[in-house]
């Protein structure tokens, strides 16, 4: 699809990002501490979410508040397909028989979650992708709120607001690392594909792109479906990382966390998406350690509880003040000397 030269010129980015992720995984592996291991799993899941969000938001320039809805759909697919049939019967009696009997491994659940989310992304997207700008953002938010309202109240199928338990917990770090790396490669492949390039052209120069025959609604829809699939798979893995799902996990909190990470990292850049997660997560973790107390000599110095969140907000504001387009702006990590990609020539075709 993409010309080999683009492929060669841009392949460095996903490779560097993957190397970073592997480094994090190895750090967790060597540290051997289970809470730290869980922290890194969490970071990988955030990478999947933010990269999924980037695939749509970064390429189309339309801010979406609704992508966490797809994570919700995916998370519940994991609950429907991996919980032991006996437990499902009591928690979610309204499931159809074939689903009730199903018990599949986590990776299959992640794929199914991605597929289910992609299907709904196609349905919603077919309607929503005609909108642009802030109207599109609000429409995606309305979609999130609708999914949340339905999943919070449909007791027989989603157990309503109650936490669904019994999802097999997966505490090994490697599947999450692989998922994060896969997400990075999918996002990269899309952004150098014909559709990705067309979409970014439409983002920067809508009139010119439309005049050159780009069907904006259609390329947006493709991006929406692909990013929905990534979010769905991420949601399913999230369910496996803590063993429970509730609708409330996949609502405003996660929406703003992921969006913040993307914007702080650099909305138009895949490297920005990954770095945003890694930098903000490391910051959060560092502040939490300080909050728990650090031994200096004989005395323990601890920040008062709650300072972590305040400091996080302040740091985010400061980063955006000095780098309004985020840490990476529109450029990517290429391993060569940094070269800012001009908005006018996306993807350097």
């Amino acid at each position: 699809m993409a010309r080999p030269s683009i492929l060669r010129r841009t392949i460095a980015t996903p490779l560097i990002l993957s190397a970073l992720l592997v480094a994090f995984a190895l750090a967790a592996w060597f540290a051997g501490s289970r809470p730290f291991n869980q922290t890194v799993i969490d970071i990988f899941l955030q990478v999947v979410f933010v990269v999924g969000l980037y695939t749509f938001v970064g390429n189309s320039g339309v801010i979406s508040f609704g992508h966490i809805a797809f994570a919700c759909l995916g998370g519940y697919v994991a609950a429907w397909t991996t919980i032991k049939p006996m437990m499902k019967g009591s928690a979610m009696p309204g499931l159809p028989d074939w689903l009730m009997q199903m018990e599949i491994p986590y990776w299959a659940a992640a794929l199914a979650g991605g597929g289910f989310a992609a299907f709904w992304a196609l349905v919603f997207g077919a309607v929503l992708m005609r909108l642009s700008g802030i109207a599109a953002s609000i429409a995606t938010f309305a979609m999130l709120a609708m999914v949340n309202a339905i999943y919070s109240n449909w007791s027989s199928v989603t157990a309503a607001t109650s936490s669904v338990v019994g999802i097999p917990i997966l505490r090994s770090i490697w599947p999450y690392m692989i998922a994060a790396i896969l997400a990075v490669f999918i996002a990269w492949a899309f952004s150098i594909s014909r559709y990705g390039l067309a979409l970014r052209a439409a983002r920067d120069e809508p009139t010119a792109a439309a005049a050159s025959g780009v069907n904006i609604a259609r390329v947006r829809l493709i991006a929406f479906v692909i990013s929905g699939a990534i979010m769905g798979a991420g949601g399913a893995l999230y369910a496996h990382s803590i063993g429970i799902v509730t609708p409330d996990t996949f609502y405003l909190g996660l929406t703003f966390t992921t969006l913040s990470m993307l914007v702080v990292g650099g909305m138009g850049s895949l490297s920005g998406a990954v770095l945003g997660v890694l930098i903000l997560s490391s910051l959060i973790q560092g502040l939490r350690w300080l909050e728990a107390g650090v031994q200096i000599g004989t005395s323990t110095i601890a920040l008062p509880g709650g300072v972590q969140e305040i400091a996080l907000g302040a740091v985010m504001i400061l980063i955006l003040m000095f780098r309004p387009t985020g840490i990476m702006g529109n450029s990517e990590l290429t391993g060569r000397r940094a070269r800012t990609e001009k908005p006018g020539e996306p993807g350097t075709t």
Partner: peptide
Amino acid sequence: NADTKTDRAEGAKAGLSVID
């Protein structure tokens, strides 16, 4: 003690932390 920070994912970590 371990702090869950009123967050589910942190809760899992806090549980593992006191177990360790």
